[in-house]
Amino acid sequence: MSYWYKPERLMRLPQFDYHAPGNLVDALNWLRDNEHLNVRILAGGTDLLVDIRGKAIPDGHRPRCQEHRSGAWHARSSPPAEIDYMLALSHIPELRTISHDGNRLLIGSMTTIAELEDSADIRTKLSALSDGAAQLGSPLVRNRGTFGGNLCNARPAADTAIPTLALSGKLVLVSAHGERTVEHDDFVIGPGESVIKPDEILKEVIFDLPDNPSASAYIKLANRKALEISVVGAAASLTFERNDSSPGSTEIAGFGKVINARIALGAVAPKPLLIPDAGKALIGGELTDETILESARIASEKARPITDHRGSAEYRRMMVEVLVKRALTKCRERMLKQPVAEVQS
């Protein structure tokens, strides 16, 4: 057993000091002035306060979920994190807003997952994000966990990240030196790793709302309905040509050919994965059973899943096809249910 393994060290969180600035500028200046310290940014804490605890799976212990597998199992134990300061964002109200700016919807990073789930604007305009929020963790996790925390934690299965990628959300990163905007696809580099710098804070995420009729959906496959990380997740976001053709046409009233399509997958690669070819297969045609199946097949081919305790690579690949099909079908359902007048607004 390594030196740090003492039960009493695992009982409590590691030591740190705490600072909670009242506005964003103060927070950024504080980060700049304290560059030499080991600082963690605290949002809802539902990832961070779990991660910084030491983990003690004693050497030689093989968890039950690994018993039937062959090959080596490496006990995952880690000492508590060493932290000088927690910089809490909880006292910065400007980060906890959902607002419109012309054709854009801006969501502040401290917006809780429950607030995403409850927002009527997000449900109708960014349905996939609403789907993702409603399925994240449990009500207790959603009440404290934030949108920014879910994105910055940069996990490949993050339930609001896959929809954000499909919906082309742009992340606004700010520091005392300025501001930059990053596409979600360029934001995450690998499991738990993103391009955010230690002196930067994720301020908000910007979604451009298309003028044309559009729909999106996110489907999560997990072993249970709550408290579960997805085995596979799939998000689809579609924009259609406006179509006012007469009744009797094969096209669905109010919308016609697909002009933009993005398919994103979770838990099948080291980071949330955009499958451009699966989107391209839909563009230029109507959304039919055939195009849906073709797109789902391409997504399944391009996924790069691994085998772990949540599922095998083969199973995940098969499920990608099913989930993309369901996500696209859900988009079609949503288009049909939407009153035409609303689609045109």
């Binding site: 705490y18 909670a20 809802g44 804490g45 539902t46 306060l49 779990v50 927690m86 207790l140 404290r144």
Partner: peptide, 24 residues
Amino acid sequence: GDCGACTVLIDGVPSSSCLVLAIE
């Protein structure tokens, strides 16, 4: 945050008190 035994209401909202710093 997995079990919910430490649930308290913060401003009426159920929260896992093991994942909230007291100072917050």
